[in-house]
Design a protein around this nucleic acid. Structure first.
Lengths: 128, 128
DNA sequence: GCCATCGGTTACTTTTTGGTTACCACTAAT
DNA sequence: ATTAGTGGTAACCAAAAAGTAACCGATGGC
């Protein structure tokens, strides 16, 4: 009685998956990298509302979970390219399905563009 | 220039999906309900480390996102049953795939049981 | 000499999320 | 009269995540 854990393997793998990709930025990063490697700066441009600190952090975590490869070139100014590993590629179809699911399930929502700024609070200016 | 949003539809639906289910508890709740309705207390028993406050919160959010149905019986003591909606059922196969992905991708990890207690910090006793 | 570039890091603050404890309403059983 | 059982809520607090702004090092160009 009074167990302090969940002993259902399926739930556990879900927990694990969510620990890895279940946050605000990681699925987007993986998605953006699905067409090939991108540099740090380009990722930052494509996700204009993520801060460099957080981007660095997410990239590090994804790398240490084996989903990203970081390739640093010995140039000045520096160049660093991030690409998906095999592990991450296996995730792409599932991410696609998650995306399709939202599209089908919430037809009332327009997904043409999304402001990454917290959507629950009003924002001053979204475009300059 | 200086856009403050992401204009990639696929990324946006992903963001939306993750806003809905991408956290610590919600996929587990959905998973646990996949075999039929459960009462509040039973959910709490199955997830012994979630607090009632947070459980209440997650259930409310899932309900307002149209994934859960809350059925309250006029009895004393009260009885409330939660069940999945159609929307949520459509998510089940995808959750299954996420779970399978982790299983296949991280063969070194044993998913037999997972302590839901924050895994980064040491814990006193996991079983009483 | 001075500025720009790129991919960060550091220190600090704010926001979000999660957790703890106490409490409630209502009834039946003791 | 008290206690147990259920599904919560309220006030308060701690921890984690995210954001901000300033800075760095090496080099090339002016």
């Amino acid at each position: 009685m009074a167990r302090k854990y969940i002993d259902n393997p399926n739930a556990c793998t879900l927990v694990h998956t969510m620990n890895i990709i279940g946050n605000k930025w990681k699925p987007i990063i993986i998605y953006l990298l699905s067409n090939g490697p991108l540099r740090f700066g380009m990722l930052n441009t494509l996700m204009p509302t993520i801060s460099k600190k957080v981007l660095t952090n997410q990239l590090k975590e994804l790398e240490s979970d084996g989903l990203l490869l970081r390739k640093s070139f010995a140039e000045i100014p520096p160049r660093v390219e991030y690409s998906l590993t095999e592990r991450a590629s296996g995730l792409l179809p599932v991410l696609k399905q998650l995306s399709d699911w939202a599209n089908d399930t919430y037809p009332e929502i327009d997904f043409e563009e999304c402001r990454i700024i917290d959507s629950n609070k009003k924002q001053k200016n979204s475009v300059d």
